[in-house]
Write a protein that binds this DNA or RNA. Sequence first.
DNA 1: TAATCAAACTTGTATAGACAAGTGCTATTT
DNA 2: AAATAGCACTTGTCTATACAAGTTTGATTA
Lengths: 270, 270
Amino acid sequence: MSMKTANFQLSHLYDQVVSPNKNYPKHQQLAADLRQRIASGQWREGDKLPSESELCALVEASRGTVRHALATLRSEGLIAGGQGKPPTVAHTVPSQSFSTFMSFTEWAQSIGRSPGQRTVELARRVADSIVAEQMGLRADEKVIQVLRLRLLDETPAMVERSNFALEAGRLLFDFDSDSGSIFGYLREQGVDLSRGRHTIDAVAADETDAELLGVQVGTPLLRERRITSSRAGEILEYSDDRYLPQLANFSIENTSEHRAALTRVPSSVT
Amino acid sequence: MSMKTANFQLSHLYDQVVSPNKNYPKHQQLAADLRQRIASGQWREGDKLPSESELCALVEASRGTVRHALATLRSEGLIAGGQGKPPTVAHTVPSQSFSTFMSFTEWAQSIGRSPGQRTVELARRVADSIVAEQMGLRADEKVIQVLRLRLLDETPAMVERSNFALEAGRLLFDFDSDSGSIFGYLREQGVDLSRGRHTIDAVAADETDAELLGVQVGTPLLRERRITSSRAGEILEYSDDRYLPQLANFSIENTSEHRAALTRVPSSVT
DNA sequence: TAATCAAACTTGTATAGACAAGTGCTATTT
DNA sequence: AAATAGCACTTGTCTATACAAGTTTGATTA
């Protein structure tokens, strides 16, 4: 073991890393730790990670376990590298976690902007035909509708039209929807929001959009329609969010090795 | 081994599966085979896959190898299932391969539509400031510009404004750009197009867009701006594609376990 | 000096075994 | 009949070992 002088202190690394929490498997702890180092900027794009054998020694794990952790990061697109070469921190378009992507509030905070909202309407009414179809409801079933204007640093940025299934929406009458994240609140209340399907297109601003966002009717808006469901597949929310394209858009990165989860789909002609 | 009657013929499966190609590792062959079965519809959403031990027997591999293959499919979102339960085919929004996502022609074919194109302009000129900035070129450097109208089943669907770096674009003068996929042609010629970064937003149709697509000026269009680069990071293409939102949009799926590669980013204010 | 070769790394593939932990069925018990 | 306990089966975690294959490095050779 020739042990060339490493570009960081192994013992120091060790101190930081391993707070051996018996509740999580080793490979997850190691993955979380490496992820955090990359996210925090401690390891930058192109930097070499410690070799597998070094990591084995550091966390006192077998090579299989270390490789399991590295495979996880690889599948997330965080590290790259081929046979013979130690893995390096990938050219990083940080992919967003589920809740960062699902919650406007969390997203805004993650980019260092202050989120805001103004609730225009909170109502319980029969779902219209589009909503009923998307949520798989009968024509006479009711939903909780929320219409909110979302702000970024006090500036209008997005109009949100959410429709919640009754079991989840009921809880909203006990919530000040001007105070923050509905997504966060519902999760705290134990609602199982764990899957989202998003469709992105462009629409012209209608009168409501125009008034709330302060633009002319017909202005192009970037629309994200979202169906949120539980782990078991029950649909809990259908939302139609319209962004000012000057203020937010969507981005994805794609390589020939690493296929993207984003897909371009033919629009259902309605 | 109690061997309850399986819902498929093991020996038959075996015949189909294993054409033991020595050029590829076992875990990749198994993954490709399982992927193909799911894609072909032989195994449908919710169907149980054979258990790990059954797969071991079928492909004559150790459990580690089988688990490696299953982990690959899991990371692609194709299968789901937890401890104690055999894996099942996931609720499937098939993620698109790199080339399907990058190439309009391949995409159209993959959804059973016929792609078409009409080249409006093919020119070699100095890059304008936006293009130069995006491609990292000096102000006086030239690019090859292509303006094409793309068709889906003979109907106008998208306006494509591509800018190619000279080394790649040169080849286009020997190519009939009305005949098909530029992406496919360049790859055949050995151009290393292996990374794409996509940004999606909404814009109003300008006069050119309006005329080509047959809509009014100001109509909302769904815009995808794309930077294509080589493995090494040289930027080879910058494209601005504008879709009729009635005809194509973008979709993504997201779970709390499986983070999406799609991200919402603040627009650069230009 | 420059090219070449070999050794010492690195990661990739594959196997075998052990135990933990969750699920579903069955037979027993209540 | 319903609840319970146990068993068989599943996947999850982890270790240890071996060899293949690509990369880097340094010493040897021309």
